[in-house]
């Protein structure tokens, strides 16, 4: 469970002070699938970076499973990100010199798993994403949709508590975007908590909760009901 209280993030550039998040109170539960929407510059990505510990708030608190992350040193945050979270970025963020399998296996190796075990779990994750036949391809040898699926495989291979996705469909065609959203749906049905930032309402409405951020504040929150 992630809880934020009065979350504030301010950027200072020379004399210009910009408050991007203006006191956000938020709570997510295990098994949630939350879509965060908002116009450009509203603060939705900044909010997700705070939740995922990629950035630190200027003020306010973030508690993850009862652990206050405010005073956490960077080394601890790195460990937290490695074990608790998985990330899917808009531009896939795969390491170009590693194969698909190695990209997926890297966090598993970093967790101290033996090479054989890490590669086996990475293979399973790739197979699940429909890429079991391309483990040895470099990212440059994969299409955008395939790269994003490798990225998702990397994010979920170590079974994180929360999967963060930052505009995961922004660079994909409709078919690939549908495939990604289908994977998210299946993962969530299996209990995976997902927090996704998107500007595409059609995909945002596939989540269970839709939060709209505007001018650094939560403007609205909606529970979405789907027929299964």
């Amino acid at each position: 469970m992630i809880v934020t209280k009065n979350l504030i993030r301010t950027f200072v550039t020379g004399d210009i002070v910009t408050q991007v998040l203006k006191g956000i109170d938020f709570e997510s539960k295990d098994g949630d699938f939350i879509a965060i929407m908002g116009r450009s510059g509203a603060g939705k990505s900044t909010f997700m970076y705070q939740l995922s510990l990629l950035d630190s708030p200027t003020d306010g608190t973030i508690t993850i499973d009862g652990v206050d992350t405010h005073t956490m040193p960077e080394s601890k945050r790195v460990e937290f990100r490695l074990t608790y979270f998985g990330y899917v970025f808009q531009d896939y963020a795969l390491l170009p010199e590693l194969t698909a399998l190695e990209n997926v296996a890297l966090p598993l190796l970093m967790q101290g798993k033996k090479r054989a075990k890490a590669y086996k779990e990475a293979t399973t994750a790739l197979e699940r994403m429909g890429l079991g036949h391309r483990p040895n391809n470099l990212p440059s040898q994969l299409s955008g949709g395939e790269q994003q699926r490798v990225s998702i495989a990397r994010a979920v291979a170590h079974k994180p508590k929360v999967l963060f996705a930052d505009e995961p469909t922004a660079n994909l065609d409709n078919e690939s975007s549908e495939a990604v959203m289908q994977i998210f749906k299946e993962l969530n049905e299996e209990g995976q908590t997902i927090i996704m930032v998107t500007h595409e309402e059609v995909y945002a409405r596939r989540a269970k909760r839709l939060i709209v951020i505007d001018d650094g504040r939560i403007k609205s929150e909606e529970k979405l009901h789907h027929k299964h």
Binding site: V78, R81, L106
Partner: peptide, 16 residues
Amino acid sequence: RKFIGILKGIGIHGRV
């Protein structure tokens, strides 16, 4: 730098 950031982002320690 971007890939270094990604590595750190996904939990690879700077020391590594």
